[in-house]
């Protein structure tokens, strides 16, 4: 009979607890609900992987930009207007036919917010964090991204304040596409390194 009562040890519905916490903080004048609205709106609607896709497309089209991006990623990314917390110390990792890069944070959920937004659930999951460093090829296989034995896999564990983004290989047959069309091709998963394009 107790099998369906496990939930009773959880204090209460998080939605109710959040409402209570917010009301108390607002009542005390410690939090301005309008500021909370701005923060939510920013990450739901303004910052996301489209930013990173723009950076990638620009790098594919402009060799000088790509050079700057690989040498000083924060400055090159800021050129496109993308600046915010968790991205001050960006590093761009270039995928090539010989090298495949994969980004993880084994200790928590470090992720390059200004270019990719907030991380998806799988990136923060125990399964990904535990396996990406010990079995990257197995993880890549599960994402439908097999990597040949002749390719070197480099995994980047974000243990400090550096934030990593992968510059995927430009797909063949895209030479005539515009920047907008290229942006539409670039996926979040490719910029984390779990997918190819």
């Amino acid at each position: 009979m107790a099998h369906d009562h496990d939930h009773q040890v959880v204090p209460s519905d998080p939605a109710l607890r959040v409402k209570a916490l917010e009301s108390l903080l607002v009542e005390k004048g410690l939090v301005d609900p309008a500021a909370l609205d701005v923060l939510v709106d920013t990450f739901e609607n303004k910052v996301g992987p489209r930013n990173g896709a723009r950076v990638v497309a620009r790098a594919w089209l402009d060799p000088e930009y790509k050079k700057r991006l690989l040498e000083d990623a924060p400055a090159a990314i800021a050129e496109l207007g993308y600046t915010s917390g968790q991205g001050e110390h960006m590093v761009v990792l270039e995928n090539t036919p010989e090298v495949h890069n994969l980004v993880v944070c084994t200790l928590c959920s470090c992720y390059p917010w200004p270019v990719l937004g907030l991380p998806p659930v799988w990136y923060k999951s125990a399964a990904y964090r535990s396996r990406a460093v010990i079995d990257p090829r197995g993880v890549l296989q599960e994402f439908g991204t097999p990597v040949g034995d002749d390719v070197e896999v480099r995994v980047w564990d974000s243990t400090a304040e550096l934030r990593y983004i992968v510059l995927p290989e430009r797909p063949a047959g895209t030479e005539t596409l515009s920047e907008e069309e290229l942006v539409a091709l670039v996926t979040r998963n490719a910029m984390v390194g779990v997918a190819k394009l």
């Binding site: 200790l107 659930v121 799988w122 999951s125 125990a126 535990s130 460093v133 599960e142």
Partner: peptide, 12 residues
């Protein structure tokens, strides 16, 4: 968690 096993496949 780096290197732990038994956490299952990555669900995306």
């Amino acid at each position: 968690m780096g290197g732990m096993q038994g956490m299952g496949p990555v669900q995306h």
